[in-house]
Simulated assay, not measured.
Amino acid sequence: MYTIVIGFTTVGFILNYLSSRRVILSSHTVLRTWAYANASTSKVLGLASLTLGLILHIMQLGFGSGIFSFLVILMTAGSLVVLLYPLNIFNFRVLLLLFAISLILELFI
């Protein structure tokens, strides 16, 4: 369950990050191009993903702990995205691979 919540939070931050007009990236990936061209849709999807992550955190951990855990994960994911996305280390394929490995480890170990 934590993997899914972290995934929603990270994807929400990435969508909001890529839809910003201030972000200047050297590479133009499919997600970057779509988010930049459809900024309002990307922001709505990003906020919906962040809200869903927050609600799932609150349902799983309780009100206070859920909000605190969500904020910690949001700060961590945001720092990683801002630092690693311009270096082309943090793209959609890497995120999907990390999500799959984390989900398999969470469910079966």
Score class of each variant (00 low, 15 high):
59 M>I: 05
65 S>C: 05
27 S>P: 03
28 H>L: 13
34 W>F: 15
50 L>P: 01
17 Y>I: 08
14 I>Y: 01
10 T>A: 11
13 F>W: 10
57 H>L: 01
52 L>F: 09
97 L>Q: 06
79 S>D: 00
46 G>A: 03
60 Q>I: 03
13 F>R: 02
38 N>Y: 15
45 L>W: 09
60 Q>L: 11
58 I>R: 02
12 G>I: 02
41 T>H: 14
61 L>E: 07
26 S>F: 14
14 I>S: 05
56 L>A: 01
32 R>L: 14
67 I>N: 02
80 L>P: 00
92 F>T: 15
65 S>N: 12
107 L>A: 00
81 V>Y: 05
13 F>E: 08
73 I>G: 00
50 L>Q: 02
80 L>Y: 09
54 L>I: 04
62 G>C: 06
68 F>D: 05
94 V>K: 06
31 L>N: 08
74 L>E: 06
30 V>W: 15
21 R>L: 10
44 V>T: 13
89 I>A: 12
94 V>F: 12
45 L>I: 10
103 L>M: 02
58 I>S: 01
86 P>E: 11
100 A>S: 07
37 A>N: 12
22 R>V: 12
21 R>T: 14
34 W>C: 07
63 F>R: 05
98 L>G: 11
104 I>D: 01
57 H>E: 10
39 A>V: 12
36 Y>E: 15
66 G>F: 03
5 V>N: 08
86 P>H: 05
86 P>M: 05
73 I>R: 00
8 F>Q: 02
92 F>L: 15
51 T>W: 09
85 Y>N: 10
46 G>T: 03
47 L>G: 11
33 T>K: 12
28 H>V: 15
40 S>L: 15
24 I>P: 00
9 T>S: 09
75 M>K: 04
16 N>K: 10
12 G>F: 03
43 K>D: 15
106 E>A: 05
99 F>V: 04
72 V>H: 05
99 F>R: 01
30 V>Y: 15
15 L>S: 05
72 V>P: 00
14 I>W: 02
